[in-house]
């Protein structure tokens, strides 16, 4: 009996997700033992035409990491959707846009101008990339950027979502185990649309720090106050920690070592807009009544978009900032 097919693809993202998969160490051998790797550009040599040649639904499991930044990403998403039984949005970029999604704060023209004209850029002829370029050998083309960054689910139907930037290795291993157990008839798949490889509560659930009724008189950046109380809730010490709004699953890695959670596991179950949730939560525990005092406290968060939407702007209710929409 031939083994079920496995694929992994990398679109608009940093590549950390691929490394995280390799980071499961010897567990990777289970993948090889139970699957035939049909397509995984980072790891094996297979071409897009090989995928196109497969029958629809021939690949059992595709892990897709990366946002949809350009038309090639979108084309591949449609292709792999067609060829896969289970398509998993793997990692923060695929599920919620992640850091690439912050590009949605600016119009596309501005992004390109910034990339090709800054002082450190050597571009004396002020060249801009073109979709099609004529060269002596003929025409070559590069993919056109989309108007903004999309999440995978905004482009194709997605079966499961696996958050994390990147997903924790033990969670990846657990998901692979689960799929293998399903193959062996020992377990059932979760309902479609489920978030897998994560908890249902928030980072605070796993955080060992002591917490009290909160009342915040000032926000600080972590380098501004040292040393941090090793026992006490980081947010209560005035460091804007995103733990209360961020889905559990990482075992509170950052708070455990004295760094605030920055929210890479995305929103908790049922939350429509992560940033809005966190914003109202922070606003609720600010201990001030005078408008000027409130302003002063909020000035302690110098980059609100980065604080509240670092990982999920593309999947937020806004999707993008107003300038990006005007583009």
């Amino acid at each position: 009996m031939s083994k079920p097919k496995f694929a992994m693809y990398w679109s608009g993202s940093c590549g950390g997700c691929e490394i995280a998969v390799i980071n499961i160490h010897e567990k990777i051998l289970d993948v090889d033992a139970n699957f035939e790797v049909a397509f995984w550009p980072v790891a094996v040599d297979a071409k897009v035409k090989d995928v196109e040649a497969l029958a629809d639904g021939d690949i059992l499991l595709t892990l897709w990491n990366g946002s949809i930044r350009n038309e090639e990403n979108e084309h591949m998403a449609h292709l792999l959707r067609r060829k896969s039984k289970l398509l998993v949005a793997f990692g923060s970029c695929a599920t919620e846009g992640c850091v690439p999604g912050l590009a949605n704060l600016s119009p596309l023209s501005e992004i390109i101008d910034t990339a090709y004209t800054t002082l450190t850029t050597d571009n004396p002829n002020n060249i801009r990339p073109q979709h099609v370029t004529k060269v002596p050998e003929g025409e070559i083309s590069i993919p056109v950027l989309k108007d903004r960054v999309y999440t995978l689910a905004q482009v194709v139907d997605v079966d499961y979502f696996m958050p994390g930037c990147p997903p924790e290795s033990h969670q990846i291993a657990a998901v692979i185990d689960l799929v293998i157990q399903v193959l062996q008839g020992k377990a059932e798949l979760p309902p479609k649309g489920a978030v897998i490889g994560a908890g249902s509560s928030t980072v605070c659930e796993d955080c060992p720090r002591k917490r009290n009724v909160k009342s915040i008189k000032a926000f600080h950046r972590i380098q501004e106050i040292a040393p941090l109380d090793p026992e006490l809730c980081i947010l209560e010490q005035g460091i804007p920690c995103n733990g209360p709004a961020t889905r559990s699953g990482c075992n509170a890695r950052c708070p455990r070592v004295g760094a605030q959670c920055i929210g890479c596991y995305g929103p908790a179950e049922g939350v429509v807009d992560y940033g809005a949730r966190l914003l109202t939560a922070f606003a609720s525990v600010i201990d001030a009544n005078e408008p000027e005092e409130i302003e002063r406290i909020l000035d302690g968060i110098p980059d609100p978009a980065g604080q509240f939407y670092r990982f999920n702007l593309a999947d937020s209710l806004f999707r993008a900032g107003a300038p990006a929409f005007k583009n």
Partner: peptide, 26 residues
């Protein structure tokens, strides 16, 4: 209860003092 992580953000907000924190279950 299964979604509450016991972060205690809500604890001081209730104008009717209806919210309490269960330390043993966090």
């Amino acid at each position: 209860q299964w979604q509450c992580s016991g972060c205690r953000i809500c604890n001081g907000l209730c104008p009717f003092n209806a919210i309490s924190f269960r330390a043993e279950r966090r």
